[in-house]
Design a protein around this nucleic acid. Structure first.
Lengths: 229, 229
DNA sequence: ATTATTTGTCATGGAGTTCTAAAAATGGCG
DNA sequence: CGCCATTTTTAGAACTCCATGACAAATAAT
């Protein structure tokens, strides 16, 4: 079954060029000239991916995202004219999955489109890929990535993070966590080992280890995974 | 007699998957594609539990809840795509009983469905997420919020508030309260400690500490939680 | 067999929490 | 009102809990 891609750009030349090349990869292409139009088209067509220009008349990319992100979780690749705009994209909480600056090489874009669609198709419920922000935990592949970079996790660390991410927002006691990464009975005394694993995990995945954003300590209880922006 | 579960999600793949697996547990499953449809189905079928996607076209989960909560008290498990949406669920006045982030493992969801139905079938509704006015106490997440702002509670304070909110309106003696926050035997003498905890709690949750609105003193007896506006 | 990696133990210091004790304030009731 | 019982408030001592670093044991890799 062919994937649907929505192209949003006010420049006809760019839309044509994108349609031409992406059609080669057997996608079904729909278009919109600005954010307002994109909203209508997206709601109707339910695209699998959106290529979104940042600067447009009527309604720009950021405004579009603000509204659309409340309705769907469709992956988005942002198209920006200037490199400096990238900061803006990353800085604001737009929720773009990737970005590329114009003028871009069409092959680079094709590769990213493929990559995002591959990731996202695994995003369905039956999938084994957990995504939180820039982090991707692939359960079947036992691979963990941040911003596309593979981060090496030990078996215990992976197992721990797996439970926490799967049950995002829930607080777990050390005993529960220990039970999950161990087979067989566990001893109350081994409970401090979890602290050490958490420390090592934080060193690998937290932007700032002293102010954990994802793996939070629940005083008197244990730990919780959550995106505490 | 078989329980009825209403699944509300615009993604057919997710609906199919949920129906398939939940049917194994002998539930009667009904479906809706968005909030608007869900309203009709819910009114007609009167489900015992609703699995509700947050992001949907036509009418999203939040809007649905705003309307439906005025009509019925059916327990709801929210399905969210992104971790950051949990904050929204807890922050806004959505009366959800539990939540789970996609993608989830079906076993986890089955367990929670069972848990919610078990709690709800006994007429005492023991939700995971307790809500009184602007306050939200997330029992499994161990998070307490007022107007969307996280308020840090110590383990004893959390435990105390949990019991009181769960049994809203009921007065408890200091011994009972002490027993609840302690494991092991308690001493009559420690009973004054409760006063201190209550004081600290009031400082954190009462709009005006001198005129407690929520944690009320029952003279000669103990304390009671109640919205005494 | 040797090395590297991973896992678990322990001690320490500091942060956060709980409890006590005593004084001040308040409520109930004759 | 005035008294006593009860609750509130305060401060600090005692305690619990967690992060950290150093290290030893177990396990896997070479």
């Amino acid at each position: 079954m062919s994937k649907t891609i929505l192209i949003v750009d006010d420049d006809k030349k760019i839309r044509d060029m994108l349609r031409l090349y992406l059609a080669k990869d057997q996608y079904y292409i729909v278009e919109a000239l600005n954010g307002r139009e994109a909203l209508y088209v997206a709601r109707y067509e339910k695209p699998d991916l959106i290529l979104l220009d940042l600067m447009m008349p009527e309604m720009n990319g950021i405004e579009f995202m603000k509204i659309y992100r409340r309705e769907a979780n469709t992956p988005v690749i942002m198209l920006t004219a200037r490199a400096s705009e990238i900061d803006e994209i990353l800085g604001l909480e737009i929720g773009a999955d990737d970005y590329i600056t114009k003028p871009f090489i069409i092959q680079a874009l094709r590769a990213r489109v493929k990559a995002v669609l591959r990731r996202a198709s695994g995003d369905a419920v039956e999938s084994d890929v957990l995504r939180v922000g820039e982090m991707v935990l692939d359960r079947t592949g036992r691979i963990f990535k941040i911003k596309g970079e593979t981060v090496n996790l030990t078996p215990s660390e992976f197992s721990l993070l797996e439970l926490l991410m799967l049950n995002c927002g829930r607080a777990y006691s050390r005993i529960d966590l220990l039970q999950h990464i161990t087979d067989g009975p566990v001893l109350e005394s081994q409970t401090r080992a979890i602290d050490v694993h958490v420390r090592n995990l934080r060193a690998k995945i937290e932007p700032n280890c002293n102010e954990p954003r994802f793996i939070q300590t629940v005083y008197g209880m244990g730990y919780r995974f959550m995106d505490g922006d």
